[in-house]
């Protein structure tokens, strides 16, 4: 069945249209704690100009945002705040972990720094570097846009799939450290 279409009409799936709209109007929530925050500011400022990718509308209110950029290390005292802000954001939402500290703890392997935010909240994109250059952050946003386009967001079913709820493998291997209680096996009973 052939339908004559005018030249300025494009046919698409509703799903990919929805994704296309979403990916080109990301509203980041800058959770800037440390040095990476300065590079985040530089990304938004004149030379690098994040507006070219439709993601320049920084909103500090989590209710208005759909992309959280965690820039900088997250300390023990800050993590409950981070989790609360993540919960306050509406679906669909994505998270970029910017820099080595947010992704793994970086050089700060100390008592007070969370060793990677992906232990406690879901992360979509990791940006390496200490701090990453603005170009790297822009690349991460472009990659995230591809991911959003591929996801298909109408209905939001993808957030309920089993695979996405799985914790990261690295997380499984690093258990929560508590004070060890050594229990010696009773040798005499076995013999």
């Amino acid at each position: 069945m052939a339908i004559e279409l005018p030249e300025n009409v494009v046919i698409s799936k509703l799903d990919s249209l929805g994704s296309w709209c979403r990916k080109n109007s990301l509203w980041p929530m800058p959770f800037a704690t440390a040095c990476c925050g300065i590079e985040l500011m530089a990304t938004g400022a004149s030379r690098h100009d994040l507006a070219r990718f439709g993601a320049e509308v920084f909103r500090f209110s989590p209710r208005q945002c759909d992309l959280m950029i965690v820039a900088g290390r997250v300390a023990m005292k800050m993590l409950p705040v981070l989790q609360r802000i993540w919960q306050q954001m509406h679906e669909p939402k994505w998270c970029i972990s910017m820099g080595a500290c947010a992704s793994t703890g970086g050089v700060f392997d100390t008592y007070a720094v969370v060793q990677g935010i992906d232990r406690f909240i879901p992360v979509d994109m990791y940006v390496p570097g200490c701090p990453p250059r603005p170009e790297q952050l822009i690349q991460a946003i472009i990659d995230l846009q591809d991911k959003i386009q591929a996801e298909g967001t109408i209905g939001g079913r993808e957030f309920n799939t089993f695979a996405r709820q799985q914790r990261k493998r690295a997380l499984m291997e690093l258990p929560i450290i508590r004070t060890p209680q050594i229990v010696l096996p009773n040798r005499q009973g076995t013999n």
Partner: peptide, 11 residues
């Protein structure tokens, strides 16, 4: 304060 305390002096 202390929301970014990372133990610099301990490192």
């Amino acid at each position: 304060i202390g929301y970014l305390h990372s133990g610099f002096e301990k490192i």
